[in-house]
């Protein structure tokens, strides 16, 4: 490669053995890894990086590309094209299938990340609050949640009940997954022996459900119904991300705190009871309700 400049890719940090927590970032990382772009991945978790735009951002020779589509379009112009070996008909089908995945699985991701109350309050919110520096953590959690709400509103403008919206988007996602599974069959990847942009997109939208321990994760059970899709995710993991750490990076402390909380709770109760009783007795004594005689 003649370009000596490095490609810098700025993404949200990864966790739970995902390359990144956020699907758009996952797509960008995986696309670059598979095409072999010499990237330097910077995670979006310090003040130094936080002043850039919303990840994923690709920086190359003073050029900036601010989302996955732009990144892919640029990488194609510098000869990193994932779909270059496909026949025209396959390329056309790949584009259509990628659109199908994008339009049916993105809603379900956004819903589970930010609209589902338990997931968003107990997991996503805490995760982003911890991984990003102040004040960006406030800004981004807010931003993501608003974006997801807007997304649902524009998809189903006549529905206000989240349960009904959830049913709609899950049904759409299930249809899409069964199409994907039928299309994949017993092959290693959708087209031949190498992943294409379809595999990349699919991985980014399915892997989070398989790996992130959402408090409420119905999609995990749904996806498990199609073992060939689960295997595809595992195959991509072992081929392209063999060294991802297992377990959680940011939520570990919280788990410890929780167990400690359970342990100390008895002690806390005892201390509280003793201090409350002392306080009451002391009050009664000073007011003269209790006299020295009574104590004797």
């Amino acid at each position: 490669m003649s370009d000596k400049d490095k490609f810098q890719l700025l993404v949200f940090d990864g966790d739970f053995s995902l390359p990144s927590i956020e699907p758009e970032s996952i797509k960008s990382i995986l696309y670059c890894t598979v095409t072999g772009v010499p990237i330097e991945v910077n995670t979006f978790n310090s003040y130094k990086t936080a002043f850039n735009k919303v990840p994923p951002v690709l920086i190359h020779k003073n050029l900036r590309f601010k989302d996955y589509e732009q990144i892919v379009a640029y990488l194609k112009t510098v000869n990193f094209n994932l779909d270059s070996e496909l026949e025209p008909l396959e390329r056309s089908e790949c584009l259509a299938m990628t659109n199908l995945v994008q339009s049916k699985l993105k809603p379900v991701i956004e819903f589970n990340y930010w609209i589902e109350h338990r997931n968003s309050n107990e997991l996503m919110n805490i995760w982003f609050m911890r991984s990003l520096p102040i004040p960006f953590n406030y800004y981004y959690t807010r931003h993501f949640r608003d974006r997801a709400t807007d997304f649902m509103e524009s998809l189903y403008p006549s529905e206000t009940d989240t349960e009904i919206v959830k049913e709609y988007i899950q049904r759409a996602a299930i249809d899409c997954l069964s199409s994907l599974s039928a299309r994949l069959g017993t092959e290693d990847y959708f087209y031949g022996k190498k992943p294409t942009s379809l595999d990349v997109t699919m991985y980014a939208y399915i892997a989070p459900f398989l790996k992130i321990p959402f408090p409420l994760n119905e999609m995990n059970n749904v996806i498990s119904m199609w073992p060939n899709l689960v295997n595809l995710v595992k195959r991509i993991d072992s081929t392209y991300f063999p060294e991802l750490p297992k377990g959680s990076k940011y939520l570990k402390f919280e788990d410890q705190a929780k167990t400690n909380d359970d342990d100390v709770s008895y002690a806390a109760i005892v201390i509280l009871t003793i201090s409350a009783t002392t306080l009451m007795l002391g009050f009664a004594y000073t007011r003269g309700y209790l006299t020295g005689k009574m104590l004797n």
Binding site: E93, A96, M97, N99, L100, S103, K104, D175, S178, S179, L180, A182, R183
Partner: peptide, 8 residues
């Protein structure tokens, strides 16, 4: 599923 993909 191919048809659905093109429709989407």
């Amino acid at each position: 599923s191919n048809m659905r993909a093109y429709m989407s």
